[in-house]
Amino acid sequence: MRRHTLYIAIMLWLAILAGLKFGVRPPMPASVLMIYMTLSTIAIILFAAADEARFQAFLAPLRAVFEGRAPKAVQLLVLAGIPLLAGWGAWLRTAPSWDAPFEPRVVHPEPPSTFNFHGKRIDTASLKNPLRAAHEKDPAQLEKLTAEGKTIYYQNCFFCHGDALAGDGHFANAFSPIPANFRDVGTISMLQESFVFWRVSTGGPGLPRAATPWLSAMPVWQNFLTEDEIWKAILYIYAGSGSTPRTWDEETKHEKH
């Protein structure tokens, strides 16, 4: 067993590579594969080196080759193989693929501290959904407003964000980046309503540079909807996707109990 440490390590490495490359569907991006393989490589080498006897067994075949104790054919194979592998690796990196240049995009950009809404200066930090705040104690009224928000949603938003709010409306696949999936735990449920209001009101052109405003198909909704309508639609997208907005007050309360 111990004699084969190096071979086991190599097999394991190859198995991980194969598993990640072919076992994950849809295929993982090269950047992630690279991270995973780097970590796996480090883990395997560290594990081999974490025990003196194991480490010596791990090195032994390599030593045998470099010190000339291995059969000549094996020596030749290894000594020729390593530079070839290195060259191949380099070729993989330099070979032209002509893939579209990677356009990094910040998914949740920071909102500006203030923004314009119909000429009003809105302070993002103190912004709260006035409808939710006013009718917190009156679920029937809130439900009514949410229903109105539903109508607004299906007359304005569902083309892209989908019937089931999953970001898969019938126009969705023509746009890149694809529209936000409100059912994803990583989207609106991570954000405060003020953030959503900012995104809806100022749309794609309101994004900061790092979020590639020239690509976003999100319209500037303040040109089409009133403040009330946007807040109602926000009520609906949370209710409809079964998520709740992030609020700080609630957490603080939660912790004090």
Binding site: P29, A30, S31, V32, A100, F102, E103, V106, V107
Partner: peptide
């Protein structure tokens, strides 16, 4: 990473 770097 949360925001995965990926080509188009």
């Amino acid at each position: 990473p949360r925001s995965i770097m990926a080509s188009g």
